[in-house]
Design a protein around this nucleic acid. Sequence first.
DNA 1: TTATACAGTGAACGTTCGTTTACTGTCAAG
DNA 2: CTTGACAGTAAACGAACGTTCACTGTATAA
Lengths: 216, 216
Amino acid sequence: MKNINNINNKDINNNKINNKIYEKLKCRAELLLTFLNEHKRMPSYSEMMPLFSLKSKNAVFKIVNNLQKEGFIIKDDKGRIVFNSDFFSPAFSIKLLGRIEAGFPSPAEEELLDMISIDKLLIKNPVSSFLLKVTGDSMTEAGIMPGDYVVVDKSGTAAEGDIVIAQVDNAWTMKYLAKENGSYILLPANSRYKAIKPKNELVVAGVVTGVVRQYK
Amino acid sequence: MKNINNINNKDINNNKINNKIYEKLKCRAELLLTFLNEHKRMPSYSEMMPLFSLKSKNAVFKIVNNLQKEGFIIKDDKGRIVFNSDFFSPAFSIKLLGRIEAGFPSPAEEELLDMISIDKLLIKNPVSSFLLKVTGDSMTEAGIMPGDYVVVDKSGTAAEGDIVIAQVDNAWTMKYLAKENGSYILLPANSRYKAIKPKNELVVAGVVTGVVRQYK
DNA sequence: TTATACAGTGAACGTTCGTTTACTGTCAAG
DNA sequence: CTTGACAGTAAACGAACGTTCACTGTATAA
């Protein structure tokens, strides 16, 4: 650790240089991302040469090492490189910009590090998650409209207030899970529907962890 | 083309066999998908050997060719294999099951061919799309709640009825685009707000093509 | 039974991979 | 000016790659 009082001109200059180097690396990481989006796989070192406008594989090699040092990419046990999924999605990445009310960001503000994958955002557990298309309007007041897709995780344990996929009296439905007089009931998010109080047992098949809607 | 009248027993038997072969191929495609989700890259032939419980690289080679013949995967110009993106996402894939009211599908019904990527579903144009976090409740009745993310495509042309990100009178907002007396106005989807009739020009920055909500 | 088709084995081939070593030019610090 | 750090070039290396060839066993069709 460096004492804040000991920072001298050299450190400041180094930071300035390091930032410049970092910017160049980030630019090259973007080139890799473009290739990945286009080819659905990472380029080899030979393929990176024209990508980075270089004539030597060794130059690529050094750059890849620096990219790894900065955390952009990771080399797996076989020496193959993949994007660090903390920063990047292995597939489609999308720029996450600010909030709407905050004003529309200028292109210059578009930060590479804020690229995320919607898949990664919504799916914490790819194996036990699946998608269901919503029919019916019993959850419209919770913002879940007919035709939306819901991401369901069947491995999670449902808690009060969660939206769950449940089987009650031999029919499947999606409702809020709530408690009344010590027993679980299902609440719709539409004032035109009534709460469901299961006569028999309540089987919860999964917890809704996300909602996806697609406009044409 | 085969005439329907000419189908004989041999054809029927061949179909039965072909279905069995297809099932086995599909099963192996699933193994590849599992590897892909785990390692964020495709396995090499050597890595597929233990994956398929085989002892010969050539067996893998033949299987890969069959997978390509059936359209599961594609070999690019470098001979490297990637999943056919018509069927599979290169990243997280998620099983798309039926509709909720249709009953909950049994695991046996889970069809591999219905695996999709949410990214691919929502993002038609990765370059010109980005994500915005929603603040404010002016679109709640359209199912867009505060805290949701909206996918915005800035390359599309907005039409009447679209939800757009627009700059009006020096403020950014998300509203329905509508027409009144020949000029464009912005309609909120919340009865507590009024329509916006821009005094000056209306700048549409992008069209909302999707909505994403994440529950904890 | 014989013939045919096909999944899988095993060894070999040329190519490409990621990596290493040695060298060149450039730029800033001392 | 000298020196060190660093980006890039060029050539070479073993290892791993995708592919091919020859062969084995098994199951179905004639």
